[in-house]
């Protein structure tokens, strides 16, 4: 319903080759290696578009989101927003741009201050960005409560009085307080029960439609990501394995990892006995990722070249990008 054609070609946010390496130090502070949490991730986010980032734990999807927000400093790369590189901004300029990119976190229980009434929690971003007088801020908070499906009289309540789903609504209201253009949603529905999950997904879509928002939607649940995203990036061990428009990715998954991931999703239909690709082994640690293609240790099609040469992302048409030697 909300998936409209992308009107203009220049993306709202263009992330180029970002890297985030966390140093591993000895007890004396000597750097002895790096965890390559995010390694050369590229993507473009257009206005009103939702980009899904999927992958299993440790694939770097959350770190990607946090790096764009500058919650952790990037090791390398660029993130171009409105002609400016987010990673070069400092002080006032950074503050101003941060207003336009907001984040919704996974755990609605730990992302709210238990001693702060939720009205004030929603107003806090406005106070930080010095927007509006006290009374206006309060009105704005009341308005937001209403928009996310809560009642205005709940302004004076404390977080413990709300359920998980309601807390996630508060988190969303808070992110929207400063009128952002982009919202980075980091696993926003993973902690919620199925019946509540669908309420929050619908709310996110409604808000996107009403306020022209762009989302980076980070999640591990493929069915949820498929439902909400216009295009999807599949990550594994800090690298982007495949990236394509949603319909295209599901109709024709090209990367062996994507294929395995899709086939592993349990389908709520007992009659459908599908062929499952069961990957052997575990996800290797990002401290010492495999040489060559990071997936080769679990890939059923791995050949000699995969063990030595890193596959470069290739565009196979229709915006379908895949990093795999099978398609060279």
């Amino acid at each position: 319903m909300w998936q409209m054609a992308v009107e203009d070609e220049t993306p709202l946010l263009h992330v180029k080759n970002i890297k985030k390496y966390f140093p591993i130090t000895t007890p004396f502070g000597k750097v002895k290696g790096h965890v390559k949490a995010v390694d050369n991730i590229d993507f473009a986010l257009h206005k009103r578009e939702t980009l899904g980032l999927v992958g299993e734990s440790g694939c770097g999807k959350s770190t990607t989101g946090r790096t764009i927000m500058r919650l952790t400093e990037p090791t390398a790369g660029e993130a171009i927003y409105k002609g400016k590189d987010l990673f070069q901004l400092k002080g006032q300029e950074l503050q101003a741009l941060r207003r336009e990119i907001q984040m919704v976190f996974q755990d609605p229980y730990s992302s709210l201050d238990p001693k702060q009434i939720i009205g004030h929690a929603i107003e806090e971003p406005l106070t930080i960005h010095k927007l509006g007088a006290k009374k206006e801020r309060m009105e704005r908070a009341m308005d937001l409560l209403h928009k996310v499906g809560l009642r205005e009289d709940q302004y004076y309540r404390y977080p413990h009085e709300f359920s998980g789903g309601q807390r996630q609504r508060i988190g969303i209201a808070r992110a929207l307080a400063v009128d952002p253009a982009i919202v980075i949603c980091d696993e926003p529905v993973s902690a919620l029960d199925v019946s509540i999950q669908s309420q929050v997904i619908n709310l996110l879509q409604e808000l996107q439609h009403n306020y022209d928002l762009s989302y980076v939607f980070i999640a591990h649940d493929l069915s949820v990501v498929r439902h909400i995203s216009d295009s999807i990036g599949v990550m594994y061990l800090g690298r982007m394995m495949e990236k394509a428009p949603t319909e295209e990715l599901f109709a024709q998954p090209l990367h062996p990892y994507t294929q395995a991931l899709l086939s592993a999703v349990p389908i709520p239909n007992p009659k459908l006995k599908k062929e499952r690709i069961i990957l052997k082994g575990d996800i290797p640690t990002p401290i010492n990722p495999p040489a060559g293609c990071v997936f080769h240790t679990r890939c059923p099609y791995a050949e000699a070249r995969c063990r030595t040469e890193i596959p470069m992302p290739r565009d196979l048409g229709m915006n379908h990008v895949v990093a795999c030697h099978l398609y060279d």
């Binding site: 199925v194 069915s223 439902h227």
Partner: peptide, 18 residues
């Protein structure tokens, strides 16, 4: 419950059942 879970082959343009 069965309806509110997004399906891998579901209609994406529809809102999820609540």
């Amino acid at each position: 419950l069965l309806q509110s879970v997004p399906q891998l082959d579901g209609d994406r343009s529809k809102k999820l059942y609540v």
